[in-house]
Design a protein around this nucleic acid. Structure first.
Length: 847
RNA sequence: GCGGAUGUGGCGGAAUUGGUAGACGCGCAGCGUUGAGGUCGCUGUGGGGUAACUCCCGUGAAGGUUCGAGUCCUUUCAUCCGCACCA
């Protein structure tokens, strides 16, 4: 008997599917449609196990839905613009375009052997001019619809390389190549008005019931709706034009605990003051070196500088508060200025302690006395506190009540107004880089900023660019910038900023519905295929990519490119975990770690016998050398083994650790299934047992595997398939019954291990391709057990069990339970206080 | 710093959502098959105690609610993800 050979079998069935056109998506009015999408990959050049896991999950869903009678769309493309291509060009020479397209070809070649049910005829890359040209056309529509504007915004500026840096390229406040201290610099940049949709994007989260709760919560917190008070302090000693200082607060009830005011280093007042005060300018420059990321700002040591300006407390003009410039105030949130209430805010407390400012408490915990504070007292939202001073007097109430009361009180007295504020900022899409979608705009001396005419689209990237120096190659290209104004025909200058790559990925799902259309979308196709029924990707995209896509779908609807039903483009979302691996290292003479590849380590030792340190499982990364290459796994064991392994063991939303032994175990299991199938196909051993138990086991397997796939619990579906395999292997039922059960096995494993499934299906004489066979149905009559085993607890501890008919009345169950020998023994004659019978579950005797 | 998640045997995990903790797989041990190794098949496997037993302990830690808690509540520790120019 020969062995299962994936190297022969897998390509055979891939060819069969291709010849059959099994996975070509078609608009079929007779069937319901189902659109499965995995977040498309960045073409780095190599697929990794994370890709295998992501696409296998989508493939399981796609194949299952197809068997269940849906017309399925399951496409693949490439998120192909971005910095790595430019970095490669700078480091190794060559052109970003060549690098990218050659990577795409490599990755496609690595992906095809996985046997994914993808409709490759819809493939595109976002760097195809056909794609980004349509994006430019929509940009112009969005300009016309008032969704786009320009304003100044800060960027990380590398003063040595004379270039803008991404946050990722700023390491400890220094440029990653030049090592120069990074500065903040203002540039005029393009923005999408996503904040116009803050309220809607927040409210609509409630309709996304098939999204993970945590993702909805993260988005809600990101949008950050708050109700607060905006008011103006009157200043003294401030320069002309700054006689009022607007502040926003979400805690107006603590206004009487104010002990200082503070402004952002980017506040207009700070910018004014630095022009005349060298010491202050020095401080502000220091603040600007922190970088632009919120994380860096929040983690930095709290620093402040007294400007000498004072503000008057709005309720007591005799009280003057100092105005500081403070490094932790964000210009982008509220008004860029705050009042500090150290008693009830941890950051303000730290700041006041450092600069010796008073810390007057406003309230204390309910029932507590006023005492010196050793840290800020920040009550929980629902916690009731007693106000020592405040608009509500010495009353006890929760923060929410007090805030509403404080806003009403202030408004009555003309101190500011209640406002709803959002943390969400407009989306800055300008990038001073080459490898992105050019912003289709020209700058004309006469007409100003003008959109390019649509007939001139796409505005193509020039091919003749160099990367021998930092900065934007579009900016220094000799001729590309020169153009004519589409409005007046005069000489004009082309915009050299390109778009954030998040724009590319904000509508690719819509483009897949009609990837070759001469417009961004085709109405009939978009109407049939949208929305994405199941979207699958990493949790790291929980906020930005998904929020931008939700905004962009709304913008596409507003500009006529998507139907109204598609403003929430993803009906269901699943966020999968990473594939991780142990890290192996030894130490060099200086104690520095030296990493070793998994294949060089056997039983915790290198080939020369040196023992390695094993660091627990972590994200696969090249520098830690803990990467397992899917291609080598496919070559060794076949794609089905890799697919089976990444779907087994861990729940899909959690990380899964790749282990060599696990992969081998998967391989062995698939071989076992094949062996059992070929035994059944070949032999004709007589039945020595009833067919009924196997029929029951089959029905149960169908039921539980179906539930597992529907519920995204692939690990549980696989556990059931192991059980079913064990049952089938041991079954002594008749050959016809075993054949039928094995054919069901082929159908049930088809989503996970499609090649093996086809092979088994064929061995048993299944008709056509199992990929086209309808999903098996479980006979409901076979799912019902006749008897149930009920555990009996005495005072909550399991002491006995009884087996009773499934629908025996509770009164009779009680009688049998109390008569049980073990129960009688444990009760030892004590009277029963209470008897709890949960039908079909458990009996608890309380004495 | 802020926001979000996770924590169960030697390991990955299961537990019908408040009702038998440890399904299934890995690993390990024993037995069988095999010339040997591997493969394959069978049996056992949370910790402790016992001659034996349905005896005790046990879901990161501490406390609470309940007839009953891995599951609910409070506090706490550890790890991971995101923080707006990485994709």
């Amino acid at each position: 008997m020969s062995r299962y050979d994936p190297a022969v079998t897998e390509p055979k069935w891939q060819t069969a599917w291709e010849a059959d056109g099994t996975f070509t998506a078609r608009r079929d009015p007779a069937k319901p449609k189902y659109y499965v999408l995995e977040m498309f990959p960045y073409p780095s050049g190599r697929i990794h196990m994370g890709h295998v896991r992501n696409y296998t999950m989508g493939d399981v869903v796609a194949r299952y839905k197809s068997a269940a009678g849906f017309s399925v769309l399951h496409p693949m493309g490439w998120d192909a613009f971005g910095m790595p291509a430019e970095n490669a060009a700078m480091e190794r020479g060559g052109h970003p375009k060549d690098w990218t397209y050659s990577n795409i070809a490599d990755m496609r070649a690595q992906m095809k052997p996985l046997g994914l049910s993808i409709d490759w005829s819809r493939e595109f890359a976002t760097c195809d001019p056909e794609y980004y040209g349509q994006q430019q056309s929509m940009f112009i529509d969005m300009m016309d619809a008032g969704l786009i504007y320009r304003k100044n915004a800060v960027v990380n500026w590398d003063p040595v390389d004379m270039t803008v840096l991404a946050n990722e390229q700023v390491i400890d406040g220094r440029g990653w190549r030049s090592n120069a201290l990074v500065e903040r610099r203002e540039l005029t940049q393009w923005f999408f008005r996503i904040s116009d949709y803050s309220g809607e994007l927040l409210d609509a989260l409630e309709t996304l019931t098939d999204w993970p709760e945590k993702v909805r919560l993260m988005q809600a917190n990101w949008i950050g709706k708050s109700r607060g008070l905006q008011f103006a302090f009157t200043t003294t000693g401030a320069p002309e034009g700054f006689d009022r200082l607007e502040v926003y607060t979400t805690r107006p009830d603590t206004l009487l605990g104010a002990s200082f005011a503070a402004i952002s280093p980017d506040h207009p007042l700070a910018k004014h003051l630095e022009r005349h005060d060298p010491a202050l300018a020095e401080f502000v420059a220091e603040c600007r070196r922190i970088g632009t990321s919120e994380e860096a700002l929040e983690k930095a040591d709290k620093q402040g500088l007294d400007t000498g300006i004072r503000v008057l407390h709005p309720f007591d003009n005799a009280v003057e508060l100092p105005v500081y410039i403070a490094n932790f105030i964000l210009m982008d949130y509220g008004t860029g200025a705050i009042f500090g209430c150290p008693a009830h805010d941890a950051r303000d407390f730290e700041f006041a302690t450092k600069y010796g400012l008073p810390i007057p408490p406003v309230f204390v915990a309910e029932g507590a006395d006023e005492a010196a504070l050793t840290e800020a007292f920040v009550p929980m939202k629902s916690e009731r506190v007693r106000y020592l001073r405040g608009f509500a007097g010495a009353e006890v109430q929760t923060g929410d009540e007090a805030i509403a009361a404080a806003i009403a009180f202030c408004e009555e007295r003309g101190v500011g107004r209640g406002v709803t504020n959002y943390r969400l900022r407009d989306w800055g899409i300008s990038r001073q880089r080459y490898w992105g979608c050019p912003i289709p705009v020209v700058h004309c001396a006469t007409c100003g900023v003008v959109a390019e005419a649509k007939e001139n689209l796409p505005v193509r990237l020039p091919d003749d660019v160099t990367f021998d120096q930092p900065g934007n190659p579009l900016d220094r290209h000799p001729t590309w910038r020169t153009c004519t104004c589409p409005k007046c025909g005069g000489a004009a200058r082309r915009e050299t900023d390109t778009m954030d790559t998040f724009v590319d990925s904000s509508w690719y799902y819509a483009r897949f519905t009609s990837p070759h259309a001469a417009k961004p979308t085709d109405a009939a196709d978009a109407d049939y295929w949208m929305n994405v029924d199941q979207y699958i990707g990493g949790i790291e995209h929980a906020i930005l990519h998904l929020l931008y896509s939700r905004f962009f779908a709304r913008a596409m609807h507003k500009t006529g490119h998507l139907p109204a039903k598609a403003i929430e483009p993803f009906n269901a979302l699943f966020t999968q975990g990473m594939v991780t691996h142990e890290i192996y290292l030894t130490r060099d003479a200086a104690g520095r770690p030296v990493y070793h590849l998994p294949e060089d380590v056997t039983d915790g030792k290198l080939a020369d016998g040196t023992a390695v340190e094993i660091i627990p499982s972590a994200k696969m990364s090249k520098s830690k050398k803990n990467v397992v290459d899917p291609i080598s796994i496919i070559q060794a064991f076949g794609a089905d083994t890799a697919r089976w392994f990444v779907m087994s063991d861990s729940p899909p939303e959690r990380d899964v650790e790749w282990t060599a032994s696990g992969a081998e175990a998967s391989y062995k299991h698939l071989n076992r299934v094949w062996r059992i199938a070929s035994d059944i196909a070949a032999s004709d051993t007589p039945a020595t047992a009833d067919d009924l138990p196997l029929a029951r086991a089959t029905a149960k397997a169908i039921d539980e595997v179906t539930k597992g796939i529907e519920g995204f619990a692939f690990n549980k579906a696989i556990a059931k398939l192991y059980e079913f395999t064990n049952t089938l292997q041991k079954s002594q039922a008749g050959m016809a019954a075993r054949r039928d059960a094995m054919k069901v096995m082929a159908q049930l494993i088809q989503p996970m291990t499609p090649h093996l499934a086809e092979e088994v299906w064929q061995m048993l004489g299944g008709e056509g391709l199992v990929a086209r066979a309808p999903w098996p149905q479980a006979d409901p009559a076979l799912l019902i057990e006749d008897t149930v085993i009920l555990p009996i607890q005495i005072n909550g501890k399991r002491r006995a069990e009884i087996s009773v008919p499934r629908d025996m009345p509770a009164a009779e169950v009680e009688k049998i339970a109390l008569a049980n020998d073990d129960v009688v023994k444990f009760l030892a004659g004590q009277p029963v206080k209470k008897l709890i019978v949960v039908p079909g579950r458990i009996i608890n005797v309380v004495v």
